[in-house]
């Protein structure tokens, strides 16, 4: 007699899975990658390839020989970490540094905690911050964006400071003098910086795709951007000579990349809407504080990592409202 499968309900499942989510994020980063290739040429390509390969290899080696568990290398999460890591560094970073950064990102940032889903901090940012404190010079020597048809695909890039660097070094006035104030250039990516973060338009294009596919929610990015805008806006109103207009802060540095692609990482950010709002406000405030008064010109990575640390607490404090449970009235 035929025996049929016994399993608990539900017997149907949505077609969503982790792999699809990861590959969608990777796909959403492709426009920014293409812009990076246009401005930084061979260096960007080389770095992207190396850090993705290094991240995937690190994960595979650890799973194969240390954990001896199932191999989840095709789930796309290691590749995504590699891609994000590459996006966060200068294009002309020496290859070996990128490899070290990748090993730290995956090895320390992710696998040490037990792999996907168990890491408290965003692995790509762990790798980036490790590199920033270990190789401070290389990590802050920013190549300037220069279209490849002007200089050739393999040409060395001219290095120069990022807008935020100029701002930190010599204040608002000098930025106006060097002509780096062109808002349009900032949005299009024609500036110095980590190669993935320069083009706001390309990143927003990817973000819209992710929002449409419901991979990310708008709550966290929106609160981050709003917080930064309001905070820097107040500073600008108080003292326009010292503080640049808030809209520049939105497109400078890695804010867009961080807000839409790192602060929305599911693993390391809060789950409920209220938690996401608190997280976003925190990231925004810390970013602005570091940018305006800190030692580093840019603070998005630190801000996200610091708020990552608060995520378990936020999750505990902000639980969803349970159906039919009356909140105890305050006495």
């Amino acid at each position: 007699m035929n025996k049929y499968t016994i399993s608990g309900s539900p017997h149907v499942h949505s077609t969503e899975n982790t792999q699809k989510i990861m590959y969608r994020v990777i796909l959403a980063l492709v426009p920014a990658l293409l812009v990076a290739l246009y401005y930084f040429g061979w260096y960007a390509l080389r770095l992207t390839f190396v850090s993705i390969a290094a991240c995937m290899l690190t994960e595979w080696l650890i799973q194969k020989f240390l954990i001896k568990g199932p191999l989840t290398i095709n789930d796309g999460s290691a590749a995504l970490t590699g891609l994000l890591l590459a996006f966060n560094v200068p294009a002309n970073l020496p290859i070996w540094m990128a490899i070290v950064g990748s090993i730290v990102a995956i090895g320390v940032g992710k696998m040490a905690f037990g792999g996907l889903g168990k890491n408290p901090f965003n692995p790509a940012l762990v790798g980036r911050v490790f590199m920033l404190v270990s190789f401070p010079t290389a990590m802050t020597t920013w190549p300037q964006a220069q279209p490849i048809f002007e200089k050739g695909f393999f040409a060395d890039a001219v290095t120069g400071p990022t807008p935020l660097g100029i701002l930190k070094e010599s204040g608002v006035g000098s930025l106006a003098e060097t002509g780096d104030m062109q808002f349009l250039d900032m949005v299009l990516g024609n500036r110095g910086g980590a190669f993935g973060e320069v083009c706001a338009i390309a990143l927003l294009l990817g973000a819209i795709y992710l929002l449409a596919r419901r991979v990310i929610e708008f709550v966290t990015p929106l609160t981050i951007l709003l917080t930064v805008f309001i905070f820097t806006g107040i500073c600008h109103l108080v003292n326009p000579a010292n503080f640049i207009a808030p809209w520049y802060h939105l497109v400078y540095g890695g804010l867009i990349l961080g807000a839409f692609f790192m602060a929305t990482d599911m693993v390391t950010t809060p789950m409920t809407i209220r938690g996401k709002i608190l997280f976003g406000v925190g990231v925004g405030l810390i970013t602005v504080v570091i940018r305006l008064w800190g030692a580093y010109p840019e603070g998005v990575s630190f801000a996200i990592l610091i708020m990552n640390a608060f995520t378990p607490l936020i999750n505990k404090a902000f639980k969803p409202y349970v159906f039919g449970v009356v909140k105890p009235s305050k006495k």
Binding site: H11, L116, G117, K118, M266
Partner: peptide, 12 residues
């Protein structure tokens, strides 16, 4: 109706 392969919770 197949149970698909279970992976780690990604806390989404």
């Amino acid at each position: 109706a197949q149970d698909r392969r279970q992976t780690n919770c990604i806390r989404c």
